[in-house]
Design a protein around this nucleic acid. Structure first.
Lengths: 235, 235
DNA sequence: CTTCAAGAGGAGCACTCGCTCCGGTTACTC
DNA sequence: GAGTAACCGGAGCGAGTGCTCCTCTTGAAG
């Protein structure tokens, strides 16, 4: 968090590239408005929605490096309008990613609640998460980026993964010493692979997923290398 | 290969970004010179070496998106000189990557020949490959890129991995149905992960590697999903 | 209906980066 | 040592991209 702050000043002039420094700008999407402020005009509200909608599609298709003009064009809005609603490209990106992320996590929660079998819940989560991410480039790019789509979201994700992990561990299905961080890293790793290879080898990631998951099962009794690190990167 | 040819024309004008289309330009680094041509001047030779040396360092440190000026600066050479030796940034990149790649593969061959145990050879290969790639951003970026550092190199790599795989399979150590493509994909996947996380979680990739390798062992008898795809992407 | 702050929009600025052009220099050949 | 082709260097071009400025428009309060 502090590290990110350091890179912030350069945005004041020009940053020339999407830096995904989500943390510092996360709260800007809902600025602190004293209640005295007049409500947004109807057309402004419409435009804002159109921008978010279009940005969601474009970011998913082309990743976070897309030209802002493309987003403006697709949402039928001028540059000025876009930048009034979102003072920086990153702000828009964060807004979009948080939405995406939340809806994804909600679906994952529901799916996990639908089964009794802990291992199936874990497997299903990976399957669903990766299928989802395979369709969204920006989501993948943000997954491992410093100050991901938002620290808060990441924490929710990690908490959820931890829950799945605990269920499996309690049932004696999980290999000894497997941490939540391992699972987070695994899902990040597979996400990236999907992005890079799903064009040429569609679906092959499922084989890799299966291989990794089998490596996670309690069948494997040998200890893992290295002390288990923390999930939170702040240090 | 044909796909790459399609994107070639745009380089004739300006491409504005490193595209890693290695195949089409690979043969340009050693142009077909009728023997009548005069040998390179001594200073030119020196400069060429300095450029390759500096580029190797810079690409490894910062990936293939670095500014060409940085390479020129570090090698103590002007832009004109750089571009005489390498008509496009990609040509330089390919030259550097091929070197890197070759030296890596050579070391891998030697290490594999030093042990009798097939599983240890496979494990050692991954360990060594990933350790090497963790130090070279450009190498990782090129690993899964279309038309990687050079199709020839990739083929050598795949042939080598296939050899390791066969040894393990013959010894009954490898899970049924695991293909060379699976192993290539796994190493690509872990490489990317290292790049993305080795700063915040140094060494955690070893845990992931171990987990995946265990999933590859013949302990796991359940069949893998999907029909096994080919290694060569051309289709 | 009038008024006017909030909103719209797009030309253009600032900056990056791949690549070229061309006047000056230098290492080889004879 | 003279001649010359090869070589050197870096200012600068053109394209891309994040963001701003400023003029014109419009929704909604009174």
């Amino acid at each position: 968090m502090l590290l990110l702050k350091v890179t912030q000043p350069e945005r004041a002039l020009r940053n020339g590239g999407c830096t995904l420094n989500a943390v510092t700008s996360a709260d800007q999407s809902t600025p602190t408005q004293p209640p005295a402020r007049r409500a947004r005009r109807a057309d402004a509200e419409r435009n804002r929605a159109a921008i978010i909608e279009a940005a969601g599609v474009v970011f998913a298709e082309q990743g976070c490096a897309v030209d802002v003009r493309e987003i403006a064009r697709r949402s039928g809005v001028g540059m000025g309008t876009l930048y009034r609603h979102f003072p920086a490209k990153d702000d828009l990106l964060v807004t979009v990613l948080e939405r995406e992320f939340t809806s994804w996590l909600t679906a994952a929660h529901e799916a996990a609640a639908a089964t009794e079998d802990p291992w199936e819940a874990l497997t299903g989560f990976f399957e669903q998460a990766l299928t989802h991410q395979a369709r969204n480039r920006a989501l993948v790019e943000s997954y491992t980026a410093t100050g991901a789509p938002s620290r808060v979201c990441a924490r929710h994700r990690d908490a959820f993964i931890d829950e799945l992990r605990t269920r499996c561990a309690d049932a004696g299905l999980l290999r000894d010493g497997v941490t939540t961080a391992d699972l987070v890293l695994l899902s990040a790793s597979l996400s990236q692979t999907i992005q890079a290879t799903d064009g040429s080898h569609p679906g092959q990631w499922r084989r890799l997923l299966r291989i990794s998951l089998d490596g996670l099962s309690s069948r494997n009794t040998e200890p893992l290398p290295e002390p288990a690190p923390h999930t939170d990167a702040e240090a």
